[in-house]
């Protein structure tokens, strides 16, 4: 292979908790290999050093919640060849998208001593709502192995193995017994995007839907089954109104309840 310039990777933060970009630092064993394969141009959680653009790969964390964000994401897009959103905030608006179901001005007046200082949008929206996105990585937080897989696939010019089917497929491949069927535990697994490796069911817990809607979610059918299990309308609304509340299928389902 001809020696090529190392791809320049930048990590960008919008409204988020930093958990997803920390997944990259959390790659401990693989981190040095990644650092050897790419040039880290901007990574606020790891270093203050910033290398000027353009960038080959931009990893974007967080949602758009301020007028400043709206401008900044355009700048990131202009400077980036390949833009990957990482996590529920960047792909669905995150937990802060709960504001989309309320009046944000009321929150501001209650929370801040001088509301006039606060410049914010009425909604928290995913990156996709503002610029073209090349790939979306789901999860709250993302799975670090999936992040490595996407970077790996890009570097090697192949398709990333990031299936969009339900969590159930991962659950069954792991040989777990379905929590919904064996003890009637409400589980969002059947409508949730795979990626976590069925983490919660492995601990006998129902899926919380951290990875957002799967490719073709039938939330209505699952909600009907949850009701059959005795889940109240309000709890159903809350279940769909989590980290991925503003992902369209979950938003629609949540609005049918509570």
């Amino acid at each position: 292979m001809a020696k090529q310039r190392k791809p320049k990777v930048a990590v960008w933060k919008f409204s988020s908790c930093d958990g997803c970009q920390l997944s990259l630092l959390d790659c401990e064993d693989e981190l040095l290999t990644v650092a050897g394969a790419v040039e880290i141009a901007n990574f606020p959680e790891a270093s203050r050093a910033v290398v000027k653009g353009p960038y080959d790969i931009s990893l974007v964390e967080g949602s758009i919640t301020t007028p400043h964000d709206v401008e900044r994401i355009q700048e990131v897009r202009r400077e980036s060849d390949f833009l990957i959103t990482i996590g529920a905030c960047a792909t669905a608006g995150g937990i802060q998208a709960l504001r989309n179901f309320s009046n944000v001005q009321e929150f501001i007046s209650i929370v801040y001593a001088t509301p006039a200082y606060i410049s914010t949008l009425a909604t928290s929206t995913p990156i996709r709502s503002h610029v073209r996105v090349d790939f979306e990585l789901h999860g709250c937080p993302i799975n670090k192995y999936q992040l490595l897989e996407v970077i790996n696939a890009l570097l090697n010019g192949r398709k990333p193995n990031i299936p969009a089917h339900s969590v159930c497929v991962e659950c069954k491949r792991r040989g777990l017994a379905c929590v919904l069927v064996t003890h009637g535990t409400p589980c969002l697994g059947p409508v949730t995007h795979a990626g976590c490796g069925a983490l919660c069911p492995a601990y006998q817990r129902g899926c919380y839907g951290c990875f957002g809607p799967m490719e073709t979610p039938n939330t209505t059918a699952l909600a009907a089954q949850w009701k059959h299990l005795g889940v109240s309308e309000q709890d159903l609304m809350r279940a769909f109104r989590g980290f991925n509340a503003f992902a369209e299928p979950f938003r629609q389902e949540s609005e049918k309840h509570g």
Partner: peptide, 13 residues
């Protein structure tokens, strides 16, 4: 189809 989750459980079991 209105009830099916397309979760794939039936095929995996």
């Amino acid at each position: 189809a209105a009830r099916c989750l397309a979760c794939a459980n039936c095929t995996l079991v």
